[in-house]
Design a binder for these strands. Structure first.
Lengths: 404, 404
DNA sequence: ATTAATTCGTTCTATCACCGAACTAAATCA
DNA sequence: TGATTTAGTTCGGTGATAGAACGAATTAAT
């Protein structure tokens, strides 16, 4: 058989799958119209997809004029993926099916012993989640793991990962693949957040999008033309090292970035201590500001001014349409309001600034997006690496809350 | 005929064309090996391409064992493109053929009357350049015009274009298309520089690349995963508004960016004036520094420190492999050496910093790259918008100096 | 209730792009 | 001179798809 013919068939198959994934239960005639393929071709492909166990008959149309049509839909439990958000304090695992329904989200405190223990913990949580919904292990095809730092796809290592002991020098991807028995993709957690927000959150339909996570540290994720910006060493989005805030040429700024030192939690606490003379945690500072404490408000103002500068820097370089703030600190509405006020004072073009709607779950939503996208691509996709298998629209996706 | 079949054929045709473009004179058997298509298919496609006037026989191989092979090559004068670099002081026009040979580069001072006069000037230069090489007008298929500011593809207007009077509110693209009689693509000049350097300059084979042009102003071009970053309002790369250097919240910084004010020519001159107490032009300052003037050297040091910060900002956000400095000031070797010294003092990961090798011609090289790429795509390309028709490798391209 | 209109899905035939194998042609090697 | 090697063609065959015709099933209209 010809090679190009094989590709041609895959293309058509993919188009059909996409129509079914996106269009819910749909008749063959409708698929033909949508895809511009002829009716018999659709029939043939549908027959094959049904045979292979990816789709099934749903029922028949009725009420319209003309003959009733048989409708088809995805078999949601034909395959599953695992989405993992590995943080310094918590591990989050979710299992999602082909139709993008998410079951069984499990959360647990990260195993403090680090290294292999964390790997085993992730595996255990996966099996636990799967078991909770009676999902057979073999049906899970791949996992996407989000982690802080710069995961290297090639070596499977996570560079510059803070907060998790003992994984600096281990091949996390391989270890996980061994423990789980299927493919594992590593990705930076903030990158997953952008993807998550782009799929189901604040950034729907926005192809030029940035995400800034502010918490104990600061990190950024950037999407350009619908593609993730990873950079050469996967170090794109290391916003902590933006050369302002603290003095960038201070040697200390090479260890903890000049920007991170002043804008993340440590900087906020320090600013409050200097101004007031006593210590307070970040949530306390927010509370005081809400209660009318002017000095606390000043601290937040100053923080927001710095954040606005960060947004301006991103906008000056990449000019995204929207910047989403996330992370425990970035999520605070009081802060975003202030950033919106300060930004036009230091940057002349309009940039939308919003808080993340997915919050702490942004990363796992993003991991799910990548996982399903990979899976769809692997099963039905073209071979082009940048081909984006479009995921179902937000309305049809159920991301139900996990049992705690 | 089937639609997918048509696509399939285009794919194959394109593959053949690519092999011919890249591989110089090449036999059908070799093309078959390279493309993994069968010999007869190649023969068929080659026959058609020859019939359509895109390729021609070149000669025969000899010296090898086995039967001699007929070799084919591109007919370089089958089509031409015009590349235009429209600057505040100079207009540059080049005509290039399908094989990426550039003829007839014309340079002239930009018509000071602006607006339609500039449009007419560009057209005149095009015809002049074409006439100089006896190229019939009809064979020019399209033009790519690089200009400062943010060219909007949709409206054909150039927003925020400094230095050129009377084109703020005119549809430059349409006016040019009317004057020239073929398609015109507008692009930011610094964006063209990145593309140019990526094709024939310092950035060959580097898909994550940044270009900083420092002159009377400052601008940046960014390439991520081989794609240009334009941003929503085509305002990506407006580095002048990076929020450091001068005080970003100073209202003046909204007009002339905080960074631009201190790092571009005005800032350098000002810095010298403050330190020494007398005025000097930028070239003079460089001369003095070269002659051993310590204060002039200090001014350059300070400028380089600021530039290093700019590079750091780009690296923190997008993490390109290399940053190329260009523009009348950025090209100075003395400056780059200093930037290389300062960068590691404010940014922890390695970033290569180089001067542009294409210099003032970077934009026109980039325009040529885009033009030829578009043309190849239009003629033989797949319909995918992001498909990159690969241009011939640097060695085979002759970018001969223009007659002045 | 019968007929008309409409849509669904299949069957049948044709076309197109391509491959593989066999074959011819022309060169070098020994 | 024949063996070897490579180039290119001819011929038959196959897979993916289209288009037209047709039967099937339904609603709307009379």
């Amino acid at each position: 058989m010809s090679d190009t013919q094989r590709i041609s068939r895959k293309f058509s198959q993919r188009a059909v799958m996409e129509a079914i994934v996106q269009g819910g239960p749909i008749s063959r005639a409708s698929i033909a119209k949508q895809t511009d393929l002829s009716k018999q071709t659709i029939s043939e492909i549908v027959r094959q997809l049904e045979l292979e166990g990816w789709i099934r008959e749903t029922g028949r149309t009725s009420g319209h004029i003309g003959r009733t049509a048989v409708t088809y839909e995805l078999i949601p439990d034909a395959a599953y993926i695992a989405a993992v958000d590995l943080g310094g304090t918590k591990v989050r695992v979710a299992i999602a099916d082909l139709a993008c329904h998410v079951f069984a989200e499990e959360v647990a405190p990260t195993d403090r012993r680090g290294g292999q223990f964390v790997v085993d913990q992730i595996a255990a949580l996966c099996w636990q989640a799967a078991a909770a919904q009676n999902i057979p292990r073999e049906k899970i095809r791949m996992a996407v793991v989000g982690a802080p730092g710069a995961p290297e796809q090639s070596t499977g290592r996570i560079l510059m990962a803070p907060n998790i002991p003992g994984i600096q020098d281990m091949d996390v991807a391989s270890a996980l693949e061994k423990a789980l028995g299927f493919d594992v993709t590593l990705e930076n957690d903030v990158n997953l957040c952008v993807i998550g927000e782009n799929w189901l959150g604040q950034g729907q339909g926005i192809d030029n999008l940035a995400y800034i996570a502010v918490g104990t540290g600061i990190g950024g994720g950037l999407m350009v033309n619908g593609q993730l910006v990873r950079g050469v060493g996967n170090a794109a989005g290391e916003l902590g090292f933006l050369p302002f805030g603290a003095e960038p040429f201070d040697p200390e700024s090479l260890r903890t970035g000049a920007y991170e030192r002043v804008v993340a939690s440590f900087g906020i606490i320090e600013r409050y201590r200097r101004l007031v003379g006593e210590a307070a945690t970040v949530p306390e500072i927010f509370e005081k500001a809400a209660a009318g404490d002017e000095k606390a408000a000043t601290v937040l103002d100053e923080t927001a001014r710095l954040l606005a500068q960060g947004v301006a820097a991103i906008a000056a370089i990449a000019n995204p349409q929207k910047v989403i703030l996330g992370g425990s600190i970035g999520l605070r509405e009081e802060l975003v309001v202030r950033v919106r006020k300060f930004l036009p004072q230091c940057f002349p073009y309009p940039v939308e600034v919003e808080t993340s709607v997915l919050g702490a779950r942004a990363a796992i939503v993003g991991a799910t997006a990548i996982g399903l996208s990979h899976l769809h691509n692997a099963l039905f996709g073209a071979d082009a690496p940048d081909s984006r298998m479009s995921l179902p629209p937000a309305e049809t996706v159920s991301f139900k809350e996990a049992v705690r």
